[in-house]
Nucleic acid binder design. Structure first.
Lengths: 112, 112
DNA sequence: GCCATGCGCAACCTCCTGGTTGCACAGTTG
DNA sequence: CAACTGTGCAACCAGGAGGTTGCGCATGGC
């Protein structure tokens, strides 16, 4: 796991229920603090902070200090890459399906 | 890792460079076997098999036995849920995307 | 000035993930 | 049949992810 593609990092950041819930809350409720996010969650505030650091490391959220509070906000621009990946994946699969000759024996795929 | 939200499971499956490469290759080249996938990868065939099992557990790929070979193919329907999630997140009208996760594949915002 | 909140850091623990090696078994092919 | 290739299974290991607790420090309200 030497080089981590940026897209994989974003997917990894989203690949956890707690982080997914955090992102969902930030997407709906705007910028929130770690303590606010920890209310209603079933884990500690520290765990939320760690998850927020993972999300920030992936570039999915930004943190801004406002006096005593630190507000975390979603970065929707960071969602473009994974969306493009998923779109391209579906499109590539469609192309691969098209390549299967329509009149030959409809075998599943190319021989390995 | 049994009771995750379905979307988080898919994201987790995509959150690793090796699995991402596997999915990419399956998306372009159609169905391939574990041994074929291990050629060109920097890890063992067994590691590839484990990754394929993770992907299959997330419903992203299916396996089909053809004689001696086992061919893994992408399941593009499984991409609908994460795509809908990302779209909803970016748009802000998240709310109804993945409140509950029933057994069936969450489709509904797929076909363009 | 004092107290209550909220944040940050650090130590610590448990468990799963990612990876390897080794070997046995199943089909293919000559 | 015999050799070769592809799969499957199991044991095993290192490391990191996820989580907790505890405490010290800053900040805002009274």
């Amino acid at each position: 796991m030497a080089r981590k593609p940026a897209v994989a990092e974003v997917f990894f950041a989203l690949g956890h229920g707690t982080r997914l819930a955090i992102v969902r809350r930030l997407g709906v409720g705007g910028a929130l603090s770690a303590t606010t996010l920890s209310r209603g969650a079933k884990v500690t505030r520290q765990a939320i902070v760690k998850h927020l650091q993972v999300l920030e490391g992936a570039g999915l959220v930004t943190s801004e200090r406002l006096g005593k509070h630190v507000l975390y906000a979603l970065v929707p621009a960071r969602l473009a890459a994974p969306r493009a990946f998923l779109d391209g994946l579906a499109a590539g699969w469609d192309r691969a399906v098209d390549k299967r000759s329509p009149r030959g024996a409809a075998r599943g795929t190319a021989a390995p």
